[in-house]
Design a protein around this nucleic acid. Structure first.
Length: 666
RNA sequence: GCGCCCGUAGCUCAGCUGGAUAGAGCGGCAGCCUCCGAAGCUGUAGGUCAGAAGUUCGAAUCUUCUCGGGCGCACCA
């Protein structure tokens, strides 16, 4: 609602500036004043104009004041400070429109593809992967159509690198360290399923073991590295036992990853795999395109002689001087002199597919059934009919910022091929990695050097088997919540207590990983994550639960409370100190669509997490100050009920976009 | 060496495209459960926004430099 009024005001000002001064400003700032006494919208526009009109800001503000005050929905306009135009809204009118759920439309046309998670299927997921998946899942929820907004057509995919070295490492561990054959592996896998043992956990240890093993014996090191390479090539080639073992393990681990993510409410539509990119020869097609357009060329001199290379993507700031006529030594190699393609090369082909520019498609097969939809996986042949996943209009790749350079390279390839618009609509939704605090690392049993202890964070390492496994973390979060729920609600059925604990544990975890902005390195700490007080998920959930309890006790439902506001004379009840404290809840609630738009534009779910906390805090203040059930004035009671209803309604919505459910009780 | 990111209260972090007295949580201290649930609320102490210069009516925010920290720059994926 705030957004609607803001746009209306901006339009009005633009008209006024044009009429009176013949000026069009590029962007008109309408901000929230620091204090409610200054009104609900502040315009510093007079400062902007002062120079151009050679007039004092205050004088300009005075000229605009009365005209602005006549705008619909505006109660009054005041001039403050050196020339701020402070707008006070018509509180009663705004409240009534909000009660009727009037709000700005968020959404647009086109298909948006969000890619996240993308964990190598060779070991258990850890906290870092959770940050990725939770960011991506929340962002997809922000974009998708739901009861609040039309949103955008959105597809979620999870890229599976099932033929990489990391999978090869696991295969080496299984075949060489454990001496298993393909049949042994099949037996082992079904045994794990029967005993309900986590395959990804077993692989976690195997991966650490084989990483040590490569280095353990200096005499054998070269031979072992060769074995690793041969294994990788066998997997890539396919049609042999080694490849089948890899497939069995990778699929098994992938299924575990899907289970882990499903615990957090994270689902996917499609799982494109590297094996299909290989076997369907995506790269060969991309290569032909790139050579044809002159983007990819054979280097004939210098250190990269014999490689196929492309110009390196560089930021605008850094200019690289090329020696006229000489080889571009800084070029990015896409095909090595031995003819094999690099990671970036394959990624370029894959991204051409995402935009429907490759002229090729995957085969599709059903892989997993969720409650509401099917998750498909890439195959060579595939089933029909199948949904379409390419042909995106905009793509978002949730990838660690350590991949900034290769991501820029992919974007550069699109641009060089002439797909400038596609390159512009390619968002690398990057984020800083997750480390561990020294305290948590030591809790996990790792011995730290003095140097490590002095650091702000300690980096996790799959090769060392060092990190916080995702399922362990989820277990602990839910466990801690369960303990609280058990002591607070012994009267509830076991199943309900379990459900509540799950919502709280997951909510706390998701909120914890979302409240940091993307470029903040998170030093993960168990103690911090398990805190359920203050700026946390449970705090926001608790506010929503309290609001719901009021309706239960009052015997009124929230919809009726909101509908009841329409016939009331609200103006007097929203004025004065008491009234303002009620109005502030509505004001904060009114900013929902604006905040969502900002969060989408910045691809930053943290903005929503922060807003959810602010709204919850606002509600808690209100809750404490105004006792609703004992209110004797019927009209006032109705307004207070509606206030609780609006706070709850918007709180449930934001939390929904963050993937956080509101439990039945807490 | 080159590129990217960061430095804000004791700790962990916000601070939107420059705008009013720099905010929040945790922790500290002092309070609030015969009143809708205390996973809550109220009050209080705590900052030379790393440093310097510049642009501007106005800078935590933009520019340059310095200092300190992190990450990335392979014919690895």
């Amino acid at each position: 609602m705030y957004r609607i009024l803001q746009l209306q005001l901006q339009t009005r000002i633009e008209e006024l500036l044009m009429e009176r001064y013949g000026i069009a400003l590029a962007n008109l700032v309408v901000e929230l004043p620091p204090k409610i006494e200054f009104g609900e919208m502040a315009l510093p526009v007079a400062f902007e104009l002062a120079k151009r009109l050679k007039k004092a800001p205050r004088a300009i503000a005075q000229e605009l004041q009365s005209e602005l005050a006549a705008t619909a929905g505006v109660a009054s306009v005041e001039i403050a400070g050196a020339g701020y135009l402070n707008v006070k809204l018509d509180r009663a009118a705004t409240v009534k429109r909000m009660a009727a759920d009037e709000h700005a439309v968020v959404g647009g046309g086109g298909f948006r593809l969000v890619e996240h998670t993308s964990i190598n299927p060779n070991k258990a997921a850890h906290v870092g992967h959770l940050r990725n998946a939770i960011l991506g899942d929340s962002f997809a929820r922000m974009l998708k159509k739901d009861e609040y907004k039309p949103g955008w057509e959105t597809g979620v995919q999870n890229y599976i690198d099932n033929t990489g070295v990391q999978v090869a490492d696991i295969v080496v561990a299984i075949t060489t360290l454990k001496g298993m054959s393909l049949d042994d592996v099949r037996g082992w896998l079904s045994e794990l399923i029967e005993t309900n043992t986590r395959l990804d956990y077993a692989c976690w240890d195997l991966y650490a073991a084989v990483s040590q093993w490569y280095e353990a014996d200096p005499v054998q090191a070269a031979a072992r590295k060769q074995l690793r390479l041969d294994t990788l090539h066998a997997i890539e080639a396919g049609g042999n036992d080694t490849a089948e073992i890899a497939e069995a393990i990778a699929s098994g681990v992938l299924r575990r990853h899907l289970e882990t993510m499903e615990r957090l409410g994270i689902e996917y539509d499609f799982l494109p795999r590297e094996s299909e990119i290989l076997h369907l020869h995506f790269w060969e097609t991309a290569r032909a395109l790139m050579v044809e357009k002159g983007v990819l060329y054979l280097e004939t001199a210098g250190k990269n002689k014999g490689c196929w290379v492309m110009r390196r993507a560089i930021s605008e700031a850094a200019g690289v001087e090329l020696v006229e006529g000489g080889p571009d030594e800084d070029a990015k190699i896409l095909v090595r002199s031995n003819g094999t393609v690099t990671y970036v090369g394959k990624d370029i082909a894959y991204h051409l597919w995402k935009y429907g520019l490759l002229g090729k498609d995957f085969g599709y097969a059903k892989f997993h059934e969720y409650a509401t939809h099917v998750c498909w996986i890439s195959t060579v042949l595939g089933e029909d009919p199948h949904p379409s996943f390419g042909h995106a209009d905009a793509i978002y790749n949730v990838i660690d910022s350590r991949q900034d350079d290769p991501q820029m390279q992919v974007k550069e390839a699109l641009r060089s091929l002439g797909y400038v618009a596609e390159a512009d609509r390619y968002t690398h939704l990057n984020y800083a990695f997750v480390g561990l605090t020294a305290r948590t690392a030591e809790d996990l049993g790792y011995v730290l050097s003095e140097e490590d202890k002095a650091k702000n964070f300690i980096e996790v390492s799959g090769r060392k088997g060092f990190g916080v496994k995702a399922d362990d973390l989820i277990d602990r979060m839910i466990g801690a919540a369960r303990k609280e729920v058990d002591s607070r609600h012994p009267e509830l059925e076991d199943a309900e207590r379990a459900e509540i604990a799950e919502a709280i544990g997951v909510g706390a975890l998701r909120f914890f990983l979302l409240r940091f902005t993307r470029n903040t390195i998170i030093a993960f700490d168990y103690q911090d994550a398990l805190a359920f007080d203050g700026e946390t998920g449970p705090y926001a959930q608790y506010a929503a639960v309290r609001a719901a309890n009021i309706f239960r006790k009052a015997g009124v439902n929230a919809e009726d409370a909101l509908a009841g506001v329409a016939g009331l004379d609200l103006a007097a009840m929203l004025e004065g100190e008491e009234g303002t404290s009620v109005w502030e809840v509505w004001l904060t609630a009114s900013r929902l669509s604006l905040v969502l738009e900002q969060a989408i534009a910045a691809a930053e779910p943290a903005i929503l997490a922060r807003y959810a906390f602010t709204l919850a805090q606002q509600f808690n203040n209100f809750y404490h100050r105004h006792h609703i059930l004992t209110e004797t004035d019927e009209a006032r009671k109705m307004l207070l009920l509606a206030t609780a209803a609006v706070a709850r309604r918007e709180l449930v919505r934001v939390l929904g976009w963050l993937g956080i459910r509101v439990p039945s009780a807490m």
